[in-house]
Nucleic acid binder design. Structure first.
Lengths: 208, 208
DNA sequence: TCCCACCCTGTCCTTCGGTCCAATATTCGG
DNA sequence: CCGAATATTGGACCGAAGGACAGGGTGGGA
């Protein structure tokens, strides 16, 4: 029968855990190490000493591990995932959210705090140096002028600054930008930044 | 009402999809681009032209995107995730598995082929190393609420959307955001996005 | 108890961003 | 020569963004 364990060290107050999983048991790291096995669900607090090692051990034994943190950050999230944990959430998340996490990881999914997700995933691809032609493809759909405007805007410049840079009117910048939005199918400059920020701009030719 | 779309280009045979999601509709990329929006579930075949761009657009519109491939590999999986897809599976996966994927991603999880999972997660952590530590440090200067606002804004959301997300008024969002700007010493949300997505966008204008 | 940090909200105001309606000049291919 | 695409600018309009005020509430520490 599958167990459901909460691993903690101090005497953390865990009303939400209790509420989310009434059938779960609270235990110490040592007990979890000894008892948990295949199919068991184990929640590990990130304030436990060597929680990473513990998570790695448990997940290696095919336990389903989620890490909970009072101070979630993307680095810790990545570490948790690297240690085999399949979930990473705030320790004080609502019972509904905890159950959602449980549902996801029980179905072979990964669950990470939504706010961290973008960074965890987003930075991955860049760091890997993966070549995505997304950028060049999208940019190649633009005219030279539109491209220049788009890149300047993506660098965080205001329309006014772009206008000065390219020595045109702010009005013209808006016109080009409108075309860029249409062609790249984005709503506003923020989405443009996010789209262009997905990849480092490798070799931008000044035109061709 | 949330739609359920399959995006494909050729006339792929999709008996398993049909079986898994009888209520789903098959459509072309253009249709998906036009119709899909918030909360919709969209399955994109990786043999579609510019599937990455499509996935990025859809996920940016808060659609729930999964990518299906006839020849899954970790590289493509990473690309899919980088484009905002939350699921990556084999196109010929069993209906049960497809439904599992759907269940997971509908609950804010991410689902990647188990065989690829280790590779994806592993390479992520290694590649990141200590790089994204800067952000954590800068973010740690913020209060919980400010951080939540900052991250949401950095994800490209408008103040209105952030307000809805956090269940506060738009005014409060502005207040927090003002504090964020002060603490991180940035002028506006554009600079914030650039800081948090820490991208070496060489601000080169294609200028002549 | 008082102070301070945090969280939430309000109004007024200015600037910026984006889209709608135009118009004009140039270049380039059929 | 004629249309199509590109580059440029104008004006009007409206919503979003952000600062300058001015409060309200909580909880913890001196």
């Amino acid at each position: 029968m599958t167990q459901h364990l909460f691993v903690t060290q101090g005497n953390d107050d865990i009303p939400r855990w209790r509420e989310a999983f009434p059938q779960a048991r609270v235990c110490r790291p040592a007990q979890a190490r000894a008892q948990a096995g295949h199919g068991d669900h184990v929640w590990v607090m990130s304030n436990v000493d060597d929680w990473g090692v513990l998570a790695a051990n448990l997940s290696r034994r095919n336990a389903i591990v989620a890490v909970l943190s009072y101070t979630p950050d993307s680095e810790e999230a990545l570490q948790a995932l690297a240690c085999g944990a399949r979930g990473y959430a705030h320790a004080l998340a609502s019972p509904e959210m905890l159950r959602q996490v449980q549902l996801v990881i029980a179905n072979q999914g990964i669950w990470v705090l939504p706010e961290l997700m973008a960074k965890v995933v987003g930075s991955t691809f860049r760091a890997l140096g993966g070549e995505s032609r997304v950028q060049e493809e999208t940019l190649s759909a633009l005219t030279q002028r539109e491209r220049a405007v788009a890149l300047s805007v993506a660098a965080g410049n205001s329309n006014k600054v772009v206008a000065r840079e390219l020595d045109i009117t702010e009005r013209t910048v808006k016109a080009h930008l409108g075309a860029v939005f249409r062609k790249l199918q984005v709503r506003d400059r923020m989405q443009l930044i996010l789209m262009l920020s997905k990849q480092p701009i490798a070799a931008m030719d000044g035109g061709e």
